[in-house]
């Protein structure tokens, strides 16, 4: 019998995929959100985590920039 799961399909580059996998590994077991890792650049995750992932990535990006103080 064919099985269908609702979720969010993520397509990104390899480093970003690793970052997301790492993010998934660092949360407690009950909050794990990756359903399937499809290949090195694609994965399938829980439908409700889209915003969470986006804000995490934005924070990661900000941590890596330095603003010259005025």
């Amino acid at each position: 019998m064919v099985n269908a799961i609702k979720g969010v399909f993520i397509s990104c580059d390899i480093p970003m995929a690793q970052y997301i996998i790492n993010m998934n590994a660092s949360v407690p077991a009950s909050d794990k959100f990756i359903i399937h890792i499809l290949d090195s650049t694609h994965m399938f995750v829980q439908p409700q985590v889209e915003q969470m992932i986006r804000s995490q990535i934005a924070k990661f990006r900000e941590d890596n920039t330095y603003v010259k103080p005025n």
């Binding site: 979720g7 399909f9 993520i10 397509s11 990104c12 399938f44 992932i53 990535i57």
Partner: peptide, 10 residues
């Protein structure tokens, strides 16, 4: 860098 699409997995 990250593209997300609401989808179904079969």
């Amino acid at each position: 860098r990250v593209e997300m699409t609401e989808a179904y997995y079969y």
